[in-house]
Amino acid sequence: MNYSLIQFDVRDGVARLTLNRPDKMNSFNADMHAEVRDALDSIQTNTAIRVLVITGAGRGFCAGQDLADAEVRFTPGDTPPDLGDVVERHYKPLVMRLSQLRVPTIAAVNGIAAGAGASLALACDMVVATQSASFVLPFANIGLIPDTGCSWHLPQRIGQARAMGLALTGKKLPAAQAAEWGMIWEAVEDAAFASSVDTLAAKLATMPTKALVRTRQAMQSAHTHMLDTHLSAEGEMMRELGHSADYVEGVSAFLEKRAPKFTGT
């Protein structure tokens, strides 16, 4: 697929997906969804990719759904479109692809992340934001609920009280406060943002990829498991990883007092 609404490139094991509708604050329409899906699918078959960075072009990360898009646009007095169908066809597949991706994911939030844009960031494994960035959940202002997995991810990260407050009021949350609350990994000075993201991505790209992904899966399933079930799930993951080439390399490097060279296998 030829991309026009995203940019996608791979270098040194790092895939960078840039939402590229800066004039619309990188808001989603149906065509951009299709391009993002295609890029994420390509990662699943490209073993050279070890980490994914998602960011936005211009001055914002993502403003969520483009309400002018034909799939959701309607004239007052007309019957509104079926938003449940939009979620099922676009936003649910987006979140599920990220949750099942074979590499760890970083959201590099370079500006406002609003609505489904904030939800997209939370669906990634780690979030790094500029100090000037902010997060806002404006769903209630137009009679909707936080979607794109936000009502699942957000309470887990910051607790029920804070999640409810953000969802009900639509209050803008500065990146620094989001970091203090544990909503994101860190907020960094704008001038240091690009280098901070590059350093983190480069580090993850050299780590044991399977172990990072299984860590994501273990943490995501923890709140739905009873303790004994979760301990068994941990055991199965440890059994698998204990037979991986990266585990052998990690132990060998430790014993030989050298830096490991992980291959993601």
Rank of each mutant, 00 (worst) to 15 (best):
T199W: 08
H225S: 15
E71R: 05
G242N: 06
Q177R: 11
L212S: 10
V14I: 08
S151V: 11
L212R: 02
T224K: 12
D82Y: 06
Y247V: 04
A163R: 04
D246Q: 03
N110F: 03
T105G: 00
M25R: 12
A178I: 02
A68V: 03
I112M: 10
F254T: 11
L137R: 05
A48Y: 12
G56F: 03
T265V: 10
E240G: 02
T105V: 00
S244K: 08
L231I: 15
A15M: 08
N141C: 15
R157M: 08
T224Q: 12
S4G: 12
K92I: 14
G149Y: 01
Y91F: 09
Y247G: 09
M32A: 07
L40Q: 06
L212P: 00
I49N: 01
A233Y: 11
K171R: 13
R214G: 03
R73M: 04
T224W: 10
P104L: 05
G117L: 06
R216I: 05
D190A: 09
S27C: 10
G60Y: 00
G235F: 04
R50L: 01
G235N: 15
A187E: 07
F8T: 03
H90M: 13
A245Q: 08
A57S: 09
S244R: 02
V251R: 11
L17H: 02
S195E: 13
L17V: 04
